[in-house]
Amino acid sequence: MAAATNQARIGRIGLYAFLVTTCLFFSIPLLVVISTSFKPLSEVRDFSVFQLPAQMTAAAWGKAWQSACTGTECAGLHIAFWNSVRIVIPSVIISVLVGSLNGYALSHWRVRGADTLMLALILGAFIPYQVIIFPLVKIFSTVGIFGSVACIIAVHVLFGLPVMTLLFRNFYVGIPNELVKAARVDGAGFWRIFLFIILPLSVNMLIVAAILQTTGIWNDYLFGLIFAGHNNTPMTVELMELATTSTGVVEYNVSTAAALLTALPPLLLYFFSGRYFVRGITAGAVKG
């Protein structure tokens, strides 16, 4: 009896030791980045990266936001931040809404060739981006919107749709079709059923989809680099520029602050919407 509890206790200790080690292993790089971002440049240069800042200063953050040089301009990341916002918001709204509309049509209405369409979508979700970048560049320059906000939004919507459609389709399959039938007998059409019955049922799913898309699009680098054009470069691209632009000394404190600034929005999103995320993922079929 006592031996058994002792053994269990040792097991527990082992478990916690393992967890703490893993935790440290993953958080040390982050801690180093955070501590570096609050150091003055002299400390960064002269001391070990593991040393905590002796003199806390937010100067590096200010510089990263306002005046750090990215390429030939020295205005920090704040312009790119707003570029990213201008790209993310419409891309997320459009891809989520169109995805849910697609999912609704595919799951509750008889669409000719729906199965083939589903197969195409699943394949679409697995196609490597790199393969279609060049054709897309050609298409967009032919249409004449290459290198604009509209162009980068279109790209994000296009690449987001397969996954969004699958996500919503699988969610809507769980909603009994009788609900749609009842609404049809009540006289509601395709759009009214979508707006008044299906969308209100999908709040959690919309939030999950929006989180997925926001993080995905915010963190995108490749599309932003290629399609956004010089005046609309998103934060990730500018961050890269900032880190690789060197004028003499490498300002690691500014680079780390910039990296944190760029990573912050998705992180905050997770913090504030985590419960919806869990709720949406665990939400089952709607009963009766």
Partner: peptide, 29 residues
């Protein structure tokens, strides 16, 4: 269309609109 046939229907799973109150359910159509 079903809505133009002058019919009303009751379904096996009841098919009440989950996000609407009973009053809204009754008056939706």
């Amino acid at each position: 269309d079903p809505s133009g046939r002058g019919i009303a229907m009751v379904f096996q799973s009841y098919a009440l609109y989950p996000t609407m109150s009973v009053r809204r359910n009754l008056s939706f159509g």
